[in-house]
């Protein structure tokens, strides 16, 4: 079992350093597939000012680990890194990185898509959107 790297924290590590770290985890890696979540500046014609994230960090890490292990079994991927920010995040800033290392790109892409979807719906992270006119907590339902 490869070492997972999961971070629910105020600042993300640099994408470059995460890629380098993943590459070191196995010489079987032939593809690293990456998702970068970015704070969008417009939502339903309203200008977004910033986002505020809250998280149950311990439980979130535990659930992400479960999701990753299930995806490893399902798709045979080699290793995964997930980092998600908490606190205030400004428009245009990165908010989440998911990196999937696999032997080939196909299983990496499938696993990446499923991991990102499941993080939105299964992991205890909350997002408040502050627009120029209003603010509200977003519910991924």
């Amino acid at each position: 079992m490869k070492k997972l790297k999961i971070g629910i924290k105020q600042n993300l590590d640099s994408l470059g350093s995460l890629i380098q770290e993943l590459k070191k985890s196995s010489n079987e890696i032939g593809a690293i597939t990456i998702f970068v979540g970015v704070v969008r500046g417009i939502r339903e014609n309203e200008k977004v000012v910033r986002l505020e994230y809250d998280a149950h960090e311990a439980l979130a890490s535990q659930i992400i680990e479960k999701i990753i292990n299930e995806q490893k079994t399902k798709h045979g991927i080699i290793d995964v890194v997930v980092e998600h920010r908490t606190g205030l995040v400004m428009v245009g800033e990165d908010v989440m990185y998911v990196l999937v290392a696999s032997k080939h790109r196909r299983e990496g892409r499938q696993a990446l898509s499923e991991i990102v979807d499941r993080i939105k719906f299964e992991v205890p992270i909350w997002k408040k959107e502050i627009t120029e006119k209003d603010s509200y907590w977003v519910e991924n339902v």
Partner: peptide
């Protein structure tokens, strides 16, 4: 006891 609203991450 932890009370959690619907999730909104990502």
């Amino acid at each position: 006891i932890t009370i959690m609203p619907p999730f909104g991450g990502g």
